[in-house]
Amino acid sequence: MNLFRLAGDMTHLFSIIVLLLKIHATKSCSGISLKTQELYVIVFLTRYLDLFTRFVSLYNTVMKIVFIGTSFAIVWYMRYHKVVKQTYNKDEDTFKHYFLLLPCFVLALLLHNEFTTMDVLWTFSLYLEAVAILPQLVLLQQSRNIDNLTGNYVFFLGAYRGLYVLNWIYRYFLQDHRARWIPWISGLVQTALYADFFYYYILSWKKHEKLKLPA
């Protein structure tokens, strides 16, 4: 493991902590897309099927359990917590997230390394993660007021993807020289989806203004 990978994982973890902090401390999930959060539950469940069949490291095992657990906790808060669920912008969270599942699954059936349940579902989780942020970005675009914690959550999530790209570059040139096309391509697509958000996030930060995305 290199420093970029570790920094990427920590940024990912930090983004989740920021989101849970927002929900728990302010008892509000306004500006957060439940659809994106539900997609992340599916992403983690399908990717970490090997949790009990293959041991990589204690670090990997703990992180996998944390990602699965926190994603369930967030969805639980948004759906069932009696105060939090009332702050959910249901009418603005309009992205048809189910339409992302089938194309990602078909693509995973067509493009994978090995035709096994584990590998196809692992590939599916990579394709799905690449596009899972879309409902969240659409919701942000429709929100007049994006609060700081929501903006920071998406910023750290994007930073995590950027650091993973650096990790792959480092790994390829300085560690194992192995091409991993499926994670690379889906990771690059995912990172590119954040470009627009990053542009406006940095702009608002420079101008000391509240973040607002153009419609």
Partner: peptide, 10 residues
């Protein structure tokens, strides 16, 4: 054939 470290990232 999948090497073990093909799936080692999170």
């Amino acid at each position: 054939y999948l090497d073990d470290d093909d799936h080692d990232e999170l």
